[in-house]
């Protein structure tokens, strides 16, 4: 039943079995190339597993495409912030709001756009092109877009990478504080952050989860 995915000869995810509880914050740590992003890709539906199954609240979602999982409540961010370059913050949020509506010719509800941005304190920046935001703001907007779908589980792939060291903690505090009740799967390298924000930590090595430990013990396992 455990999840597997290989690329050619590379076993990127090689037999992972894992549960995430409601409201839980699970951190995934492990060296580069250990399969963390591939795991997130499998859970979000970007990739199909070679074998194994994924269940969400009792529903088998293994063969459901990305967009269908979003509607069920599984959303994700990307390792590199993937915003709509060349558009403004407001336009980015409008796309996120629209993506949930199917092919509808009704005008975009500006209230929804405003809510999405206000929740993460970005309303004041609405008319700026996303390219002019700071790295931290880009990360926050990236997550704000994913949160528009009101996910039950949010998969965050390295939410603090490319953000300056001294701002990482603040960023996570800000984001996590606005995601009460949402289960989080956070891929993260910074062990301070893992200790501060995770309920449980899964350690990955060459495609396998080698240990699941409380955050206090993660340093002993150090990667």
């Amino acid at each position: 039943m455990s999840l597997r995915k290989s690329f050619g000869g590379v076993k990127a995810v090689d037999g992972v079995s894992m549960d995430v509880e409601e409201g839980e914050r699970l951190a995934v740590v492990g060296p580069n190339g250990s399969g963390k992003t591939t795991l997130i890709n499998l859970l979000s539906g970007l990739l199909k597993p070679d074998s194994g199954d994924i269940y969400f609240k009792g529903i088998r979602v293994t063969n459901k495409p990305l967009h269908a999982r979003v509607k069920l409540g599984i959303a994700r961010s990307f390792q590199l912030p993937s915003l709509y370059q060349g558009l403004t913050v407001r336009q980015n949020a409008a796309i996120a709001v629209s993506a949930l509506r199917g092919f509808s010719l009704r005008p975009v509800d500006e209230e929804d756009v405003r809510d999405a941005l206000e929740r993460f304190g970005l309303w004041e920046k609405r008319d700026l092109p996303v390219g002019s935001l700071s790295e931290g703001e880009k990360k926050i907007l990236d997550i704000a877009l994913a949160v528009v779908a009101r996910p039950k589980v949010l998969l965050l792939d390295e939410p603090t990478s490319s953000v300056a060291e001294e701002n990482k903690f603040e960023l996570m505090e800000f984001v996590v504080g606005r995601l009460k009740g949402v289960s989080l799967v956070i891929v993260e390298h910074d062990l301070d952050i893992v200790e501060a924000f995770a309920d449980r930590v899964a350690v990955m090595h060459s495609g396998r989860i080698t240990a699941v430990v409380p955050p206090g013990e993660v340093r002993r396992m150090a990667v």
Binding site: R76, Q91, A99, R101, V108
Partner: peptide, 20 residues
């Protein structure tokens, strides 16, 4: 419309738009 905004999203970054 919603559909028009999705079109803009697909044009710039299709993968992201389906992830939304």
């Amino acid at each position: 419309s919603y559909a028009g905004h999705v079109a803009a999203g697909i044009k710039i970054n299709e993968l992201r738009t389906s992830a939304l």
